[in-house]
Computed example of a mutant assay.
Amino acid sequence: MNDSKKGGGIAMLVVVLGLITLVCALLLGVVNQVTDPLIKQNAIDTRNAAMGEILPEATDFPEVEVPEEMKSPEDKNAVAITAAFKAEKDGEAIGYCVQVAPKGFGGALTLIVGINADGTVAGAKVTAHAETPGLGAKSQDAEWIAQYAGQPADGSLAVSKDGGTINAITGATITSRAVTNGVNAAAQFAATLG
C-alpha cells in the first residue's frame, strides 16, 4: 500500500509540473506575439533614422532588391547584405544605404553604410550589436565610426593592424575588423547597383 501512495504522489507531481510548464509556454507565446511586431518596427525606425543621419540630403529611400544568396551567404565568413536602399533627392540617385550584418566578437552586428554616388563612403552607423560593453560596444561611438566617412568605397578598407587606414578600437580589433568588413561589403554591393 505504501508503494502505491508513492507512485500516486509522483504521478501527481509530474502532472502539476506538466501543467506549470504548459502555462509558462502559453504565456511566453502570448508575450512573443505582442512584442515581436513592436521589436520589428523599432528596428525599422532605427534603420530609417540611421539612413537619415548618414545621407541627410536624401528625401526618399526606396528599397532595392537584395538577392537571397547575399542575405544568407553559404560562406560563414561572408558578410550578409540584409537590405539596401537607393538614396534619392528630388528623384535623382545620390547614393545608397546598405544594411549589413558582419560577424563581430559577440555575434553579428547590424550596420547601416551610406555610399555616395561619387564612390566614397558617406558614413556608417552600428544600429545593433552584442559586443562587449566598454570595448566592442565603442563601435557605436560617433567619433570612432566617423573615420569611415570620406574613405574610398572600393572595398579595400582595412584596420591599421592589417596595413590599412582605419584605427581599431583599443582592445576590440575583432569588432573593428567586423565593421570594416561590413563597410567593404556594402561598398562592393553598392558598386553593383550603379
Rank of each mutant, 00 (worst) to 15 (best):
A50H: 04
S72V: 13
E68W: 00
P102H: 06
K125C: 04
K138Q: 13
E88Y: 03
G155P: 00
G91K: 10
L111T: 15
K138D: 11
P56N: 04
N167D: 15
G114K: 09
G134W: 12
A130W: 00
S160C: 02
E68V: 05
E68K: 10
V126A: 05
P133D: 01
A158Y: 01
M70L: 15
P67I: 10
F105N: 11
A84F: 02
G104Q: 06
G107R: 05
Q140H: 04
Y96H: 07
G136C: 05
G91V: 11
G164P: 02
K71N: 07
K161G: 13
G171P: 02
G114E: 06
R47D: 08
A142Q: 14
R47N: 11
I54K: 07
A50P: 08
E53P: 01
N48V: 06
E63D: 09
A130F: 02
V121I: 15
A172S: 14
D154K: 07
N77R: 04
A117I: 14
K89Y: 06
G95F: 14
Q140V: 12
Q99L: 15
E92N: 14
C97K: 05
V64N: 13
G107M: 08
G136Y: 00
A49H: 02
A122G: 11
G163P: 02
T173V: 08
T46E: 11
K103L: 10
L157C: 12
W144N: 04
V159S: 00
Y148H: 06
K76Q: 13
A168S: 10
A58D: 11
D141G: 10
I54E: 04
